[in-house]
Amino acid sequence: MAINLKQIAGMEAAYVKGHRMCAGCGVAVFVRELFIASKTAGVDVVIANATGCLEVTSSVYPESAWKYPWLHVAFENAPAAISGVERAYYALKAKGKIKDDRKVKFVAIGGDGASFDIGLQSLSGALERGHNILYIAYDNEAYMNTGYQRSSATPLYADTTTAPFGKKIPGKTQTRKDLFAIAVAHGIPYAATVSIYHWNDLITKIQKALTVEGPTFILSLTPCIPGWNMPVGDAVSLAKAAVETGYWPLVEYENGVYKWSSANPKQLKPIEEFLASQKRFAKLLKNPELLEKFKQDVISNYEKYKKLCGVA
């Protein structure tokens, strides 16, 4: 479903102002786009939010920034909680206690800490059981809310507080976990990666994820101002650079078939364009040997998905 920005501009926000997210936060932009997708697709959502930046900043008691039914649960069990909500909804519907026929999708949102590390087992369980849920992992590549500790989504050689880039150990020495591949391995009907700059691609994919019956999965790159240590207004332009340099390939997986998004670049830009303004990579940029390894890691991931999608 194509989106005409001029027609929808000014529509009432479902995630209202007054929340305490950092100025210029990429996650806030993502949530805006999520609600535009849900409203234009005509699907109502019920949200379970794992602990994380999005949760603590949007629900400072006794206030809430959400205008949809929203539930906060612990770090590890948002997918389990939303599975329960989903079962309860269909049970009440079968008993005739819920009479309206509107389309509802049950959404669980978690950051990369909740999705990649702490909540991985409950995410796996929910995907395997086949609930009618959408799981959204907004990936800002470390535990940003608690002070920038490394997570398994942190990229190679990034400087974090628990894996600092020093003389002996160059930051995080492991590559990032491929959660997209893990989600796809559950045999779910739909999964996609998105980036906040490519809003048309993002909204179309979320609309699809909301309308497909069964468990679906969205992985979004959402730049973090203090954690990536970057200029305040650059969240969206960095998300753009991540796609253009091949750091974040935009792919879709639908019923066993991988699709290469048309928003991906024809020609990759040098990776420095993505790294330069982030101080977490400042020391990496001064080390040509490690930078070369970083590049190889990015390219091999990019080529892997290109190959899966059958793109030359």
């Binding site: 949007s58 629900s59 809430s64």
Partner: peptide, 10 residues
């Protein structure tokens, strides 16, 4: 908390 009440926080 009631929905949309964060408007109180300017």
């Amino acid at each position: 908390a009631k929905g949309g009440t964060s408007l109180e926080n300017k």
